[in-house]
Design a protein around this nucleic acid. Structure first.
Lengths: 344, 344
DNA sequence: TTGTAGGCGTTATCAA
DNA sequence: TTGATAACGCCTACAA
């Protein structure tokens, strides 16, 4: 006998009250007399009732769901943020929907999601989306709770949670300078916006400039955050006639790929060359040598972004005054950095 | 002027048709005359209408959403499956909701999700959940599309997509045996069910038995799939008076943690010891030495599981005949394995 | 404290 | 081919 799933009416009948009372028990128990409440609760158990979220969403005009949009959720950097976000959202009764590698018309895609009572807000990890249009969407009379959390410096008009990428990159490079390096190369991360340099590259340049150290364009190796691109950077490095004594990579994967290739070429780290990474991924501490890197508080990014987003959704945060939360990274010195070899 | 979001009625008014016609244009355009259709489409654009998913879900009793439940989505193993799942689901017009590290009462949690018209089906990556109860849920008259995709051998009553873990582990160990090893240790992965050994451990035992090689209990190091536990296994290994010449680790992270610690202790791989991992994670090829491992078709797991699940949801697949898809892993021989050192 | 009743925005049935 | 209308299941004024 295939019964249909019980509704609030079934519970009401069972408890011999009206459906309004059942609804109250479920959403504002204190507004119902103790005895009635218990009777209703018993009826809920007896019938195996669960609220129909679609009906509730329709009525409440809210899905209690957040959409998280990431460029590639397979990347640990994003999945760790996602994990924390799911947790933080659940604590406040929200579910998380995930979108990865959005299609050819990202804005349309997101509009569909956000305007369709499927999600109440957007946590944007993808810096390549055009937030100005997304923002317009909100300006068109429709509230669009939105928090951006990614590396690039975001549109000041939208709330954001980010780490101090530029500043952190500076600290990483300063560390190399402090132990005596003057010729420092950089494996550049991809830039999300055409017209703007990657923040970590900007920080690298700033630290070099600060110490009045020259930056040679041939010391800049373009990468894409994948291990293989670090390895490719090493290939370029090996062709250099005049090799730097240290390399700062824009993330750990590239740093590790680089070290791998250099070791194969007989260049030993940190004796011949120092390497600094960025992120402090799980493997960084278990490489040989263990990698010096900037630790990113990724869990905290996820948590803070969700908190902020739900505050927006629930109206705790007044609109029009976007919050910008900047989290601090931390330099973790391990064994991949050492003073440069003595010259000749 | 804060307009409310346009409804199908607004579009109908604009196009001077009934809301029923608008609905038809949106869901079954061929049932509407060409001219009318175009008028409606124009009105949709003019009003900026997007369908209200909550209302649609309520009416259709379907959310076109899949719930993916993983033990820990921060782990690349799961996030890669998730990424593929999102993609495959999107192709069929479904969204993916994610749950990670489910709370203290997982069954209740999942029930809430699944029975509440929030999700139409469940993709279960968490082998520690009690599927029998989940299954009962379905038997209680309510259809519960469910596909399990994890390492442990699942309840035959539910559909599943898995890799040939046991067989793959056997092939990994056979590789070691083939190149001359006879004393082979194993870093054991966690078992999801109390009463059942991890599948890779079972495969390890089978391969050893097949070759009439003894398995000593002190060669079994318990791990938890994290790098640190591989490192801990190495500590144990170092205390052994009589050391095996090869180690098979139940995943790459543990294999790498192990190699890291062994190298620190002056044991060189593969000269002194051979190591085989499992999964072929991104770093495996870039470790020193590059790791021999079993490649798992994770994207394919995600894709196949979603396909199967949506077939169930949409009734393509007759219920009561659970499908069991077994995907084949592939041995990738790199440099961490070599014949054992000559005895004395 | 509890009940009545209307409507949230869709889609599907039935008629025209 | 199109339109009127009745649910889908819930919440919340408003009344009692």
């Amino acid at each position: 006998m295939a019964r249909r799933t019980p509704t609030i009416q079934d519970v009401a009948r069972e408890a011999e009250v009206s459906s309004a009372t059942v609804s109250r028990v479920l959403t504002a128990p204190e507004r119902v007399a103790e005895a009635t409440r218990e009777r209703v609760l018993a009826a809920v158990r007896a019938t195996g009732y669960t609220v129909n979220q679609a009906a509730r969403s329709l009525r409440l005009r809210s899905a209690r769901t957040i959409l998280l949009a990431a460029p590639n959720i397979a990347n640990p950097f994003y999945s760790i943020i996602l994990d924390a976000a799911i947790f933080a959202a659940a604590e406040r009764g929200y579910s998380v929907m995930v979108t990865s590698r959005i299609g050819t018309d990202p804005n349309r895609w997101l509009q569909d999601y956000l305007l369709s009572t499927r999600a109440d807000g957007l946590l944007l990890l993808d810096g390549s989306l055009d937030t100005s249009r997304l923002h317009n969407l909100g300006a068109g009379g429709i509230e669009l709770p939105l928090v951006a959390a990614y590396d690039e410096w975001p549109d000041p008009a939208i709330a954001s949670v980010l780490t101090d990428n530029r500043e952190a990159a500076m600290r990483a490079v300063r560390h190399l300078i402090a132990i005596g390096h003057t010729e420092i190369a950089h494996v550049v991360g991809p830039s999300q916006h055409r017209d703007q340099e990657n923040e970590r590259l900007v920080g690298y340049r700033a630290a070099m400039a600060e110490a009045r150290l020259p930056v040679r364009e041939e010391w800049l190796f373009q990468g894409n955050y994948e291990v293989a691109s670090g390895s490719a950077a090493a290939e370029h490095f090996l062709t250099l006639a005049d090799r730097p004594t240290a390399i700062f990579a824009a993330n750990d994967e590239m740093a590790l790929g680089l070290m791998y290739r250099l070791r194969r070429a007989g260049i030993s780290c940190p004796t011949d060359i120092s390497v600094v990474g960025f992120d402090d991924t799980a493997m960084a501490a278990y490489y040989d040598p263990p990698l010096t890197t900037m630790r990113q508080p990724r869990e905290e990014i996820g948590r803070a972004a969700i908190t902020e987003l739900i505050d927006q959704i629930e109206g705790t945060r007044p609109p029009g005054k976007p919050v910008h939360i900047v989290l601090r990274s931390e330099l973790v010195v391990r064994e991949s950095t050492a003073p440069p070899p003595k010259r000749r």
